[in-house]
Design a protein around this nucleic acid. Structure first.
Lengths: 184, 184, 184, 184
DNA sequence: AATGAATGAGTATTCATTCAT
DNA sequence: CATGAATGAATACTCATTCAT
């Protein structure tokens, strides 16, 4: 029954954290929403931080896999379009995690650095790869981060303030902004 | 002596908040770092939230003024370059506030929406104005946010992880990414 | 397999309790050290207190039997020497239980009075018997407790802080301290 | 007002700890009995353990001072009688601390070793000094501990189970037990 | 006989806020 | 203006105990 309980807790926690952030949520609330006892949360995750970390790690891993798969076997414009589109899809499908990642990206709040660094290194590496490949410029961290930032903030703007826009519309807007990045 | 005390508190608080976020900092710590009594903080700012709000508001206002001034009397590429350059300068000069703003932008944690919305509406409005002016497209919120996001995250990456790069270098990177946004 | 499990638990528990006291040990720890499940402890002993009580009772009973046997058929100096020597041997062989008994003797912590009183009444009775017999003084509880205390603390000092000393040495030290107790 | 509050807490805590031991007492109870808020306890002592440690330290220090003063300028039988009498008086006047010391002496329960070691080294040193002086035997730790143990346990037996006996009576009992320790 | 996931009452601790001085 | 001792509501975490398997 362990697995079911963990899933129950996971979902409840993810939603609450996305709504109100780490410190805005109490363990009691999570327990109540998950329909389990408070003790069960500690039995299964050890601590509130442990649970949040699980959540982050899961989100980060999934994001990494998605983007890596998206760019696989593609190059140039095709690759970058796939990348940004996937990132936007991810933000739409897991807005919870996306917001949390945006918040923790420059490690404010508590110290999840250890968990977050894969996002920067891995996620950015994919962007960097595609860009340096197309431009012949191996030194393009700034461009990679710019591209990532353009997509991330546009995506969040979309899901938070303009959820009625379509993915295509948003992607078009992002793309028209950053398309020049590939030109040498 | 009112003014001096407030300044003392302001600086201490800004640094601590930038490092560890709102909930990661206690009023005792701020008092200790500022070298004033705890009571003094409440005497001067009313509450912890009040103080944070002051901080945010100040940061947001200053940022708005800088960017508005930067773009004044300019159009097209010149205007956008001035905008992004100014934003990067601002991040360099007030990294503290910049980090806090980035964190609160999509209002995780507590709800500073009321204080933050000016950043979005005002700051974005400037970008939107320049872009829609150049492209003739009045519907360019996504582009505005993308441009803003590209500059913001690149700027933070710069001050946090690659502080040795020069402003020119960073701006060049950002610009090469987003320059197409102005083409119709 | 009932008996083996109980023995496993018994040993693990005794060592842990001796090290860290009743409240310093969790049932999980005992289970882990014994290599059995937590449920098994409750299946076999009913409760944590029940287990501790078993432990105490066993220790107290064994000690009582040893000392009673040691003094049987002896009188005067011979009897008292046998008594103190046996007590020291007991402390050496069961330091665990000895420490626990010393701790609970004046019942701090929880209330094991009911379990502990036999130690006082029985153990002391043997000392009292020997002393009153030799001195003709029927009112010698204080002497009995002094003799007991002298031996007990010397024994603990021995096993805890000076384990290299020999039994003979220690006994000689104790005896030279208390030998006058038998003189009328 | 700091001092008064601390005194209030100190007294309440000492009594409760003596009655029910460290783990048997909650901070809420102490606060209630002292008539202060729970927060005040943490403001003044930092933690429950911190408070207990203060208590122990104070008790240990006082005991050390008393015994050292008692034996000052005396030698032989006079010195030892003064020592044991003072120890008994101390147990009578501060039964609380005496019980706690007896319990912690061989460091069961939590780890107050650091606080307790002075009792062993200092208190025992006084006994050792007097005994080795009288007997010419420099190697008399066992005798010192025996003497101390005889007095301590007799004293506790007295205050806990036979409080009607007089100090003189008890001291006579102890002395008749251990007087031989000074004979070479 | 044995297990271990789940429970919930109980507990220490934190911290923004107040207020008498 | 400024202080810091005092507060108490809020919160994370512990752990003996139960029970379905």
């Amino acid at each position: 029954m362990r697995k079911e309980t963990q899933t129950l807790i996971f979902h409840a926690a993810a939603n609450l954290f996305a709504e109100r952030g780490y410190d805005g949520v109490t363990v009691d609330e999570i327990a109540a929403k998950a329909g389990v006892s408070k003790g069960s949360i500690f039995y299964n995750f050890g601590s509130k931080e442990g649970m949040y970390e699980s959540l982050l790690r899961e989100g980060v891993t999934t994001l990494g896999e998605h983007t890596r798969q998206a760019a696989a076997n593609l190059t140039g414009e095709e690759a970058l379009r796939a990348l940004t589109q996937t990132l936007l899809e991810h933000i739409r499908d897991y807005p919870t995690i996306a917001k949390v990642i945006a918040t923790e990206m420059f490690h404010l709040g508590r110290d999840w650095r250890e968990v977050m660094s894969p996002v920067r290194s891995e996620s950015l590496a994919v962007f960097e790869g595609v860009i340096s490949d197309a431009t012949g410029n191996p030194n393009c961290q700034i461009q990679a981060m710019s591209t990532f930032g353009a997509t991330l903030l546009a995506g969040l703007e979309w899901v938070v303030f303009e959820p009625d826009k379509s993915l295509a519309e948003v992607h078009e807007g992002v793309w028209s902004t950053i398309r020049a990045v590939l030109q040498p």
